[in-house]
Simulated assay, not measured.
Amino acid sequence: MPHFAHARVDLDAITDNARLLREHADGTPLMGVVKADGYGHGMVPAARALAAGGASWLGTALIKEALGLRAAGIDLPLLAWIVPPGEPVGSAIAAGIDLGVSDPALLEVIAGEARRLGRTARVHLKTDTGLNRGGVAFSAWPALVEEAARLQDAGVLRVIGVFSHFACADEPGHPSIGSQLSVFHEALELADKAGLDPEVRHISNSAALLTLPEARFDLVRAGIATYGINPIPGYSVSGLRPAMTLRSRVALTKRVPEGSGVSYGHRYRTDRETTLALIPLGYADGVPRAATNKGPVLLGGRRRTIAGTVCMDQFVVDVGDDAVEAGEYAVLFGDPGEYPGAATAEDWAEVLDTIPYEIVTRVGVRVPREYVGGAPAGRPETPPM
């Protein structure tokens, strides 16, 4: 039986979204990004679903995430791109995990661990083309690629990739996009002059994959779009299906008189005699407290709004005189094709003045993930070449 409240994840939707995105990219190899527990959907099930949809690479933020994929038996090429000091670099090298290099000092750490293990490390050199976040500053890039070439010639490491990341790809036409592409080309030329010939050059995220064919290079990194969420506000991507539905059964209903204050602070007050429905999800489960008197909820066949303050474990919906009873499902967000009238993660993001990434990734660990679809054996299919 389903849990009282749960996040239902459609693995077939993730697989179909990956296939659709590969078509949009004209067959450019696709890296499925599964950081942050697969954007809240479950890292290992999402990775397998992405592989079944043709993803030939996987990407994580952290080494421990990548090691979790290897422990689950997933052997696709795998990149972990945030490597702070003290991370288990040796474990990553031993597991055949590619490491992103955003700091010249990290290159030396990787080289030292590779020598200790007697293994050749696999690295992707990240150049900062203008995001001014991770990545090697362009002024330090020539020295980095020369040192990487020296270490590669010595058999200590192998430069598998050169990559970067856009600042404003979700704003088509933003002037920074062309500027970053130009810097990326310069960085690639410098890597070539140093004697490096990376297997993959990559800069495209989901938004760039959809709108910038000139930025596809050898690999595209698809994150949020693989989970069926549009990465560009107002941009239509036909065929993408939201993979996650967050829903809960109603815990109880009660009839209250006109003028009743509801929840902490009485920030909502009934304007008539009405029925209140209690939903056992709250900010401990990822329902933002900022959704107070704002969050959309499908209940009793109608989209309604949270009534009063979102609490740690619960919130209330005013259903008027509608015949809503305990045990019925309330859908916070999901696929409107499956639940007509349901809000999407994008709808929640718009109401709360944030991005849909935050809506799905913040769904807490107390909310069980229940999976439908997916490969019967639970292992990825061989991705098409």
Rank of each mutant, 00 (worst) to 15 (best):
T129F: 04
P296D: 03
R267C: 00
V297D: 02
W81R: 02
D322T: 13
R369C: 10
V237Q: 07
W57E: 06
G223E: 05
G300L: 03
S182M: 09
L99C: 08
L62F: 12
T60W: 01
A140E: 15
I359Y: 02
V331E: 00
R304M: 05
D347F: 04
A148Q: 04
S263V: 01
R249K: 15
A61P: 01
W57M: 09
E65A: 10
F333G: 02
D192T: 15
A148V: 11
E189H: 13
A49L: 08
G73Y: 11
S260R: 13
I355L: 11
G54D: 09
E381Y: 05
I224G: 01
R304E: 04
S139V: 15
G54C: 03
G337P: 00
G59C: 06
A143C: 01
T253A: 12
R303A: 13
L212D: 03
R369M: 10
D75C: 04
P77N: 11
V297W: 03
G27C: 09
A121K: 05
H6G: 00
R115P: 00
D16T: 11
F166K: 05
I306G: 00
G337C: 00
R115S: 04
R122I: 03
V250A: 08
G327A: 06
D153N: 13
R255M: 09
S91V: 00
L151Q: 14
R366E: 10
H266Y: 11
V351R: 14
V316R: 01
L298W: 04
V89Y: 03
M312S: 15
L352V: 08
L125I: 12
P380N: 05
F4M: 13
Y264Q: 08
I359E: 02
V145Q: 04
P242Q: 07
L219F: 06
A7Y: 00
Q314Y: 13
D75P: 00
L246C: 07
A13E: 11
A323I: 01
E147Q: 15
V89R: 01
R22N: 08
L352R: 06
G282S: 08
E258L: 12
G100V: 10
A191L: 11
I355C: 02
D313E: 15
